[in-house]
C-alpha cells in the first residue's frame, strides 16, 4: 500500500465574499502523477496556493507526509518537501539562471548548504540551463524559462511537486518537451500533482485525476474512468 503524501480534507478558500473552493477532498499517494482538471475559475490555482500556505484556509485541513501543514508558513511547507511551480513560469527575470536556482534552495539552512550540489544535479538534468547559467532568466526562451521554473522548484528536493499549468502559453513542440520532463521526473521518484487545461495531455500521463467545478470536486478516478464517465464532456467540454 503506497503512503499517502498529500491529503486535503474539506478545504474551503474564500476571497472576501467569493467562495473559490468549497469542501474539497483530494489525496495523492507517493509515486503517483495525479491531475486536477477544471474550467477557468473552477478554483484549481486557489486550491494549490492554499496547500502551499500562500492563501489562508477558510475551512478544512491539509496534511503532508503525515503532518498537518495547514496554518503553517510557506517556508515550512517547502522544508517538509512540497513545492509549487506557478502558472506562467514566473522566473525572476533580472536574476541569473544560477541565482534563480539558489532561491529555490533558500527555505532552510540545510538546503542552503546543499545548494551547489543540487545545482549541479539540475544542470545534469537540464543541460540547456547549464549552458546559460550566467544569463539573466528574462532573456531565456519560454521553454527554457519553464525548465528553469521546474528546476528551481526541484532545488528543495521535494517529495511532491505541484505543477500549475506547465503548458500555458508554450509552443506545441515545447509542450511535448515539458511533458517528457514530467515523465522523466516520475521515473526519478518525484510525485506530481498536475493542474492542466489540456485535459488530453494530462490524462495521457496521469495515474488518477480529479475534476473541479465551481470550487467543488465533482469527479475522480483513473483516466479511463474519467474519459468513460462522459462527465468529462459536461465539465471540460470535449464538444
Amino acid at each position: 500500500m503506497p503512503v499517502t503524501l498529500l491529503s486535503v480534507q474539506k478545504v474551503a478558500v474564500r476571497y472576501g465574499a467569493i467562495q473559490a473552493v468549497e469542501n474539497a477532498e483530494l489525496a495523492v499517494a507517493a509515486g503517483e502523477i495525479v491531475t486536477l482538471l477544471g474550467a477557468n475559475g473552477a478554483g484549481k490555482s486557489s486550491l494549490l496556493n492554499a496547500c502551499m500556505g500562500l492563501v489562508p484556509l477558510a475551512g478544512g485541513q491539509v496534511h503532508f507526509d503525515g503532518q498537518r501543514i495547514s496554518g503553517t508558513r510557506t517556508e515550512h511547507v517547502v522544508r517538509r518537501g512540497m513545492t509549487l511551480t506557478p502558472e506562467g513560469r514566473r522566473v525572476f527575470p533580472g536574476l541569473s539562471v544560477a541565482d534563480n536556482l539558489a532561491i529555490g534552495a533558500a527555505a532552510s539552512p540545510q538546503l542552503r548548504r546543499e545548494t551547489a550540489a543540487r545545482r549541479t544535479e539540475m544542470y545534469d538534468l537540464f543541460p540547456r540551463l547549464h549552458e546559460r547559467q550566467k544569463q539573466l532568466a528574462g532573456t531565456l526562451s519560454g521553454g527554457e524559462q519553464q525548465m528553469l521554473a521546474i528546476a528551481r522548484s526541484l532545488m528543495s528536493n521535494p517529495k511532491l511537486l505541484l505543477l500549475d499549468e506547465p503548458s500555458l502559453g508554450l509552443a506545441p513542440n515545447i509542450v511535448d518537451q515539458i511533458f517528457d520532463i514530467i515523465a522523466a521526473l516520475r521515473a526519478r521518484g518525484v510525485t506530481i500533482l498536475l493542474v492542466e487545461q489540456n485535459a488530453e495531455l494530462a490524462l495521457d500521463i496521469a495515474d488518477r485525476g480529479y475534476v473541479l467545478a465551481g470550487g467543488r470536486i465533482v469527479l475522480s478516478g483513473t483516466p479511463g474512468e474519467l474519459r468513460a464517465s462522459g462527465l468529462e464532456r459536461v465539465y471540460l467540454g470535449a464538444h
Binding site: M52, L54, R73, T74, E75, V77, V78, R79, T83, L84, P86, R90, F92, P93, G94, L95, D99, N100, A102, I103, G104, A106, A107, S108, L111, R112, T115, R152, S153, S156
Partner: peptide, 22 residues
C-alpha cells in the same frame, strides 16, 4: 543569498515566498 533573495522579492514577491523565502 539574502541579497539575491531581496532582488528576487523585488521582482516577484509572491513567487519568492513560494520558494520558501521568508
Amino acid at each position: 543569498l539574502l541579497g539575491i533573495a531581496m532582488r528576487a522579492a523585488a521582482e516577484d514577491f509572491n513567487v519568492a515566498r513560494l520558494m520558501g523565502v521568508n
